[in-house]
Design a protein around this nucleic acid. Structure first.
Length: 566
RNA sequence: UACCCCGUGGUGUAAUCGGUAACACAACAGGUUUUGGUCCUGUUAUUCCUGGUUCGAGUCCAGGCGGGGUAACCA
């Protein structure tokens, strides 16, 4: 269960209704037990976070248990690296499982179940090749036909199956299939394959097995062996439910779990499919599973997302049986909400241009009080150096300002955050016509928020004293895909063509206030008026941080300007 | 073309025996503010269609339309 108390009670949803009904009917002795069952073939992403939060919060809500179970029935795809990362990610999200299992813990029991099915005449060994199996299976609108090996005797089936286990046959030579109904409208009931021969090294059982159970034969039985009461999975497994139940009906299982499906998470401007994420990693489109642009938990963590924000997000999006796509700003808002309360404010100039205050004494330095976090008085104050030469952001100066632009421009006055008001007097340009320096004057009377003679100064800009600034690389991230629905591509086109070529912008000239170098790697900051930034836990060195932009601040000026009604 | 599931403001969800359709985000307008941030107030906008049952239907029934899933020895 959660190691921390949940931030909110969360939405009501249909799964609560189903469980309430089961409880009212006296099922499972009033017990509720769930499990999160990842296959260790990739890293967890936000879609998994939805499932994790669902399963663990269900256990929490009903005073039950939630296990972690690795669905490791296909050794060709599974690795210990993934097992480790999954455990770390679940814990990081804030949950601790009651029991840890692997489907492979149950291989012997599953094998015995298979023999049981054979002995009761409900399973047979088939010699058909893979191609033949699918040919015999028919199609969506055509019934299948029985395999010629379907009516082998129990003894022959048992003998063959045992020899399969002994390793007597090559990969793909035979399978164990359930004997159900080749003409069922549900293809999952057309004698589904239960076991296949796979001479492969398993990350946990080594070379002990050369036959491995299929998902369908492992999942429900493992649920039963773990005493799971409610087996929550995504919608694409719905059509497997009749098979899930058929197997429980025909096996001497110790419990009777029930499968309930919900819609998986989709988010705009990204993909949430382990297969596609793997492709991005292997094709080096990103730096790895933990690239801050990835929707993986490790990527989001490195980007600066917090477990609290992700849990709040999962809470907000709800649980339903309708396939939907959540707007990516909902995810962004979840981290903004969280970081607004906890991130230390700091001034950072990302694209610097020099400001000289001509009437400020040369060589003089003042230490100005700045608030660390207006949302949290306990965060205290700090001192920021002010001097004659400063850096401000290029965005905060316009030689020819549009209407409603109330930052710096020739002849106009703005306030330096926490400090004085300055007025732009002269603009210095290089031979290319680019502004290299803005010469200003300051009004000593405007210290500390004061504006004598009642004049209004609406614009406030951030700044850093040139002689006191530190430099640090800053990575600006944008969404990984430029298309709202990256999966939707024209016939024959590749979804990767929707990759956003500008998803990463590296800034090397950023000037930051000194206090950022004192913080350890893995610290959240708000760069005032700009966004939330996280000192990369891997690339930062003590005293030499590297910053990842977690999210921008909401920017109503950008909105006005983009709208063009200025 | 077969079977199954699903359709509630722009988006995501709620409405617990059929009883005033609500919340969040977004958008828009305003207020506060030494962050064009936060916060506060307000506005716009919703039950896929048609018919039926009923005093009363998002909810029940029928038909239609639309979307999704399913034909791995993947999970």
């Amino acid at each position: 269960m959660s190691s921390e108390t949940p931030t909110r009670a969360g939405h009501n949803h249909f799964i609560h209704d189903e469980i309430d009904a089961d409880l009212a009917a006296g099922k499972n002795d009033g017990r509720v037990q769930t499990r999160f069952p990842p296959e260790p073939n990739g890293y967890l992403h936000v879609g998994h976070a939805k499932s994790i939060c669902l399963n663990f919060s269900l256990a929490q809500r009903y005073g039950g248990k939630c296990n972690l179970r690795f669905d490791d029935t296909n050794p060709s795809k599974e690795e210990t690296e993934y097992v480790d990362s999954i455990q770390a990610d679940v814990r990081w999200l804030g949950f601790e499982w009651d029991a840890l299992y692997y489907a492979s813990d149950f291989f012997e029991k599953l094998y015995q179940f298979a023999e049981h099915l054979i002995k009761t005449g409900h399973a047979y060994v088939d010699d058909l090749t893979g191609d033949q199996v699918s040919e015999y299976r028919g199609s969506l609108d055509k019934p299948g036909k029985p395999s010629p090996f379907r009516d082998r005797s129990v003894d022959e089936n048992l003998d063959l199956f045992r020899r399969m286990r002994q390793g007597e046959f090559e990969n793909g030579k035979r399978t164990l299939r359930a004997k159900i109904d080749m003409s069922s409208p549900n293809p999952n009931l057309r004698d589904p394959v239960l076991y296949r021969i796979m001479h492969a090294h398993h990350h946990r059982t080594g070379d002990a097995w050369c036959i491995y159970p299929m998902y369908d034969f492992a999942h429900g039985q493992c649920d039963a062996l773990e005493s799971i009461t409610h087996s929550i999975c995504t919608l694409e497994f719905e059509i497997h439910r009749p098979l899930y139940e058929w197997l429980l009906d025909h096996l001497p299982v110790p419990a009777r779990p029930r499968q309930i499906e919900f819609a998986r998470l989709n988010i705009t401007y990204t993909v949430l499919s382990k297969r596609k994420l793997l492709e991005l990693v292997q094709g080096k489109y990103v730096s790895g599973w933990d690239d801050p642009r990835m929707p993986t938990l490790s990527g989001l963590r490195r980007r600066g997302y917090t477990p609290e924000s992700l849990r709040a997000f999962c809470d907000q999006i709800g649980v339903a049986r309708f396939n939907s796509t959540v707007d990516k700003v909902v995810l962004e808002n979840s981290i903004r909400d969280d970081l607004n309360k906890r991130a230390l404010r700091v001034m950072a100039v990302l694209n610097p241009v020099k400001v000289t205050i001509e009437n400020y004494p040369e060589g003089e330095v003042e230490w100005i009080d700045a608030v660390n976090n207006p949302e949290d008085p306990a965060a205290g104050m700090r001192k920021v150096a002010l001097s004659r030469t400063l850096w401000i952001d290029r965005d905060d100066f316009r030689e020819d300002p549009p209407k409603k632009y109330f930052r710096l421009s020739p002849g106009k006055e703005v306030r330096l955050r926490y400090a004085f008001c300055i007025t732009a007097k002269t603009v210095v340009k290089d031979s290319a016509g680019e502004v290299v320096e803005i010469i200003c004057t300051y009004d000593p009377e405007t210290r500390n928020g004061a504006t004598p003679n009642g004049r209004k100064v609406k614009g406030i800009i951030h700044w850093v004293s040139a002689g006191h600034a530190v430099e640090a690389p800053v990575r600006l991230y944008d969404h990984l895909f430029s298309a709202e629905f990256p999966d939707e591509v024209a016939e024959g086109a590749d979804w990767k063509s929707n990759l956003n070529p500008n998803s990463l912008e590296l800034l090397t000239g950023a000037k930051l206030e000194q206090s950022v170098v004192e913080a350890p790697p893995g610290t959240h900051f708000q760069f005032e008026r700009v966004g939330y930034f996280y000192s990369d836990p891997l690339d930062s060195k003590p005293g030499a941080p590297v910053f990842n932009r977690t999210a921008t601040l909401r920017d109503s000026w950008a909105k006005i300007e983009k709208r063009g009604d200025i």
